[in-house]
Amino acid sequence: MLAFLGRSLIQKIITLFFVSVISFLIIYLAPGEPSQIDPLNPIFTQEVLERFRKEFHLDKPLHVQYFYFYRDLISGKSVSWKDNRPVLGKIYERFLNSLPLFILGTLITWTLSFPVGIHAAIRRGSFYDRSTTFLAYLLISIPGFFFAYMLIIFVVTQFHVPVIGMETFGISSTGWSWLMDRVWHLLLPSILFGAGGIAVLSRYVRNQMLEVESQDYVRTAKAKGLPADKVHYKHALRNALLPFVTMFGLILPGLIGGSVIIESIFSWPGMGRMAYEAILARDYPVILTVNFISAILVLVGTFISDLLYMVVDPRIRL
């Protein structure tokens, strides 16, 4: 057990190192420089440019820049080139905005896909199964932005509520109406956030459940005359749930990626939008930090899922 932990820790640190090198190279070797972002702006004189380059070590060789950059990142000192604010503080602020979206979206995904997937598996081949299957493919295939606009048109014309942003601009009321306003703003992006997940996860639940239902012990349980509900929910479901315990670790990376389009449609000041704005402004520290953090989240996520797997499935214990 300890050996496994140590080995995977070392492996993950090596992976993280290479990720940091590659993302750094991609960004710094791309043509163009952040100092050229606005060449026509009269404020950017040659001296200012020189000072800018010196300030952010852009005049040093690449490996020195790499060293400086990650030293600053780890010690928490790196600042955004755009507004000189600490990157970590900026990300934390946006992270708090993204969090409710992430939580609600994940809740929607996990609470809906299990019943749907399980029922589809139990009634295999029925109308319910076929229609949910088709619906799942529909949700996987629909472009997120198109779905977003359909929802916006629907909600705005049917319920006459504003949906763009985190809250209605300039709203001053407190209490109930403020809360409802926030909920309406939160609802659409969360549904969008959850929709793709429902489609994928419910298919996965269905397949997993089908596989378990064809096992011998389920047939035995049926044969000895147990009620159908007991067979499905007690014998089959418990074993089918095994792989999903591990998926708790894998939803971590969703905190960062995947929300760029949704957040920019809804003008939601979250992490995805910040990353998008940083890309547009060539704000290297923010781009690289977001990349670095999401790589850490992926690695931590797989680590947690490995651990959970070992805890719940004695067959894999090393």
């Binding site: 993302s23 991609i26 960004i27 043509p31 163009g32 990626g257 760029v260 890309i279 790589a295 690695l299």
Partner: peptide, 24 residues
């Protein structure tokens, strides 16, 4: 497998967006 693991660490849409935005 190390190379695959490294590539899987990148948030793919964000990475594509970054590269496409930086290149012509």
């Amino acid at each position: 497998t190390g190379l695959i693991d490294i590539m899987l660490c990148f948030p793919s849409f964000f990475l594509i967006l970054t590269v496409v935005a930086l290149l012509p």
